[in-house]
Amino acid sequence: MTTVAGPAVETAERPVTNEYSIGRARARRRKQGAAALRTGIQAAIIVVWCLLPFYWMVVIGFRDSSYTFDPNPLPIHLTFANYISAFDTANGNYLGLALLNSFGICTVVTIVALVVGISASYCLARLNFPGKGLIMGFILGASMFPGVALLTPLFAMFSQLGWSGQYQVLIIPYIAGALPLTVYTLNSFFREMPWDLEEAARIDGCTPAQAFRIVILPLAAPAVFTTAILAFIASWNEYLLVSVLGNTQIQTVTYAIAQFTGSIPHVQPYTTIMAAGTIVTIPLIILVLVFQRRIVAGLTAGGVKG
């Protein structure tokens, strides 16, 4: 990546302006107009492709269920009934409980993963010590490990502890799942921090802990915040563990959505599911749109999927 920068700069001198080049400039501008149009069309295709299914979910979530299969893309036959029945527990769906559970579990997981992860990524980014590569490899390797392989032993372990069906059964594996992401993302942020400032603070008489708390942590706040969002989203979206270790009591939103049933057996209550899906997704969409820049920075810094 870095090898190209050198000689390329010199060859890029602008030619001297004369009549010939003015004519060329005009032709180039025309060509640029066409290129801009092509770009615009392609961009429009991408936007439509990305938003259309989501749009469809929102539209159907507001549609009267007798018109479920009406392909009209416009928001017609509007109703709020789906949002009310999405929270209805008569058919064994507990979306309200699932939302509370998910908020609680994800908040705890995010906070713990950050507190534990900050100290780990600080020392991985900042200190040189034997075994550093090994530990980084262990953490990365763990993040690639297929989750299914952990299911059986975790299930056995939690049963022996008598924890089955309690919140820690989800919280603890979720922390372990969020930690590699947290450490990896924070590590790549921390590597670019102005560490000279920390040294300056030390010279001014701070202890290492003080220097970190007073000088570095405020500077790192945006990175920590970004990582928190990514960890939260990752935990919110988790399905494999909760589908095996979870139950009605401790269900999360993904569990609730996947199990959603209607009053008639074997008939999917689509409009209600779409309303429930919208409810579950909206917090994330808001987070993502508000903190768009930071999330993109965090995703690409860590390169780990949320």
Partner: peptide, 14 residues
């Protein structure tokens, strides 16, 4: 970012 932000479980149902 929208498809990325939608939980996979919701994506599947959608």
């Amino acid at each position: 970012l929208v498809p990325w932000a939608i939980p996979t479980a919701v994506t599947a149902k959608l």
